[in-house]
Design a binder for these strands. Structure first.
Lengths: 341, 341
DNA sequence: TGTTATTTTGTAAACGTTTGCAGAGATATT
DNA sequence: AATATCTCTGCAAACGTTTACAAAATAACA
């Protein structure tokens, strides 16, 4: 009934008239303890509802069983799925995960990392905020041999392990798909200009246009950002061009979905009046029939966790980049011109 | 360059020729240390890049600075928003949050709780899985005075603190709204039958029908569950009735959205052929113009955190139920009959 | 100057574990 | 029967803090 004053190893030892060392050994199934004593200890432990104090153990072993995760947000499906992948792997080894979100702010991100450090996490998995402002912080961490793995949004100038997809290649495929559908004035709504994914996807877009002999027009490219509410600005801009695009490739699904909503408001039909494709397929995108690139989020998380564990085990493990496969899912939002009713 | 062998309070003491006690006091800004020594200590600490070992501190103070959260899932927006609310409050007081998801399975939920216990969390915030199978477990925890707060999905037979909205009242309002729109054969797709929200919302639905003199027809009620993929079964059933409903009140937005998609597939128009309303407004629902009840998720999280902290401070604090306000947002999916084109 | 009060410091125990080392008993080997 | 080898147990230190308590240094007062 009362807030049970936590039985310790000492209580068991006293109750049994043996030393704490013996109890400890019995509890840990050490071979150098008599089967009978072990049995007694185990029984008594159960009777007294003994729960080991991992803090004490961790202190001694200089561990924390904690790993930290820093993501820009976890309201949309993307990062939660990655996190589930991470947990899947690390929980099996007894690790717990501290999750923090930067809310797309580098300043908050830095705070989070510091808190995680202070919480003595044994390693960190990071997807950086859109403004990419903590290069020095991560340099320090890497320098201090803090195990760290970047996912999705990485920092190219950093020598570090990372898990990504080939954004450039898949952006190429999206653009190529639009071209093959017969679209020729293809706009690109790019993300924040420091982000790795922005650069890669933009490059893929340009690659594709080049490959098919279409001139890259700066007017058809706008750095609009990664958050849904920024889509409106993109549409505003594109729809006011003298020479409007006939297709849009958006940096990600939130922007694409934002565009679809904004276009709908203006009575512009998709794909009849304009085609649209996204990236990092989202549930909403699926429902809205948006063509997009599916990312293996759970697998990204799992691989990142594995990479991190490797580093935790061996602080001098070589950096590794894992590039996972993805998939272009074609839907109604990019119906080929010739197939239209 | 090397993995810096963690400077401790002892290193500082040795370097300065003072005792560890003095260093500790200086670091903690105790008034009973000479300003000059404090200054020296602080300087040396900075120089040696001292970072306190909270594990040692926690061990001594019998704390962990950890609180646990168990939710059915955190892929959709709902629980993540609650979690952010929780973090907002507890982070300020130096707590970190361990998040675990049960994947709607009571068995996994029990495992998670045990892991959280083993991780020495100082308290737990729970939203139970759909099958509601851990009553005894929670009874034990409450009995052992483990601080615990239930949110959203609660267990009525448990004497415990909780944060909810008045599901019954808001279900009443939704149903009332449908009635006032002119619909008379209103079906209800209910959740899993053990869930508190299922019972409450069903009751609210019945209340409203009763209040407006409409007979409750068991045939128009189906316990379909809470997950989107269960919607199809509901539509299957309802659309095969001799006397089809003219409106559907779904237990939550995922089910409602699932219904909308399924109806669309069958060429049934919303709201022309059938009206539909959800519950716990979701981003997808908003985009799809689904009438729904908005829940103050962030606030739910914040309140739950406050309740938990109160219990952590005072293990004998009285149980408390906080009922937050909500809002019925009316959209196109429940257009009044007389307003139709 | 000596006494007392006050400020500053140090000593040591405590938190709950694990583990190297040594000692005690038991068993095996010659 | 004496010695060597095992098996089992206990002692004590260690992990990095905080904090009573005591001691020392300083300040205040007569």
């Amino acid at each position: 009934m009362s807030p049970s004053p936590k039985t310790t190893i000492k209580d068991i030892a006293k109750a049994l008239g043996v030393s704490v060392a013996t109890v400890s050994r019995a509890l840990n199934g050490s071979h150098e303890v008599h089967p009978l004593t072990q049995e007694k200890v185990l029984a008594k432990a159960k009777e007294l509802r003994y729960k080991p104090n991992i803090q004490a153990r961790n202190l001694l072993k200089r561990r924390s069983n904690l790993i930290g995760v820093v993501v820009p947000e976890f309201i949309t499906f993307f990062f939660p799925e990655i996190i589930i992948g991470i947990q899947e792997v690390v929980n099996k080894l007894g690790y717990q995960v501290l999750i923090s979100q930067s809310n797309e702010s580098s300043i908050q991100e830095a705070k989070n990392v510091e808190i995680l450090e202070a919480s003595m996490v044994e390693g960190i998995i990071v997807s950086v905020a859109k403004d990419c402002g903590n290069v020095d912080l991560y340099k320090r961490l890497i320098n201090e041999r803090m195990p760290i793995v970047f996912v999705n949004r990485v920092i190219s100038e950093l020598q570090a392990s990372q898990v990504v997809i080939d954004d450039r290649k898949w952006a190429f495929k999206v653009t190529e798909h639009l071209i093959k559908c017969g679209y020729s004035r293809i706009a690109h709504l790019a993300g924040n200009n420091h982000l790795s994914v922005t650069k890669e996807r933009l490059q893929g877009y340009k690659d594709a246009l080049g490959a098919y002999g279409i001139e890259v027009q700066d007017k058809l490219i706008m750095y609009v950002g990664v958050q849904q509410d920024r889509a409106k600005a993109g549409i505003n801009y594109l729809m006011n061009l003298k020479n409007k695009p006939d297709a849009i490739f958006a940096i990600n699904d939130p922007i694409a979905v934002g565009c679809m909503l904004e276009l709908k408001k203006r009575g512009i039909r998709i794909p009849e009046d304009i085609a649209i494709a996204g990236f990092s397929e989202s549930p909403i995108g699926r429902i809205m029939n948006l063509t997009s690139v599916f990312q293996p989020t759970f697998e990204i998380g799992r691989k990142a966790a594995e990479l991190l564990l490797k580093q935790i085990k061996d602080r001098n493990a070589a950096f590794e980049t894992i590039t996972l496969d993805a998939k272009l899912n074609i839907r109604h939002s990019t119906l080929p011109l010739h197939k239209r009713p």
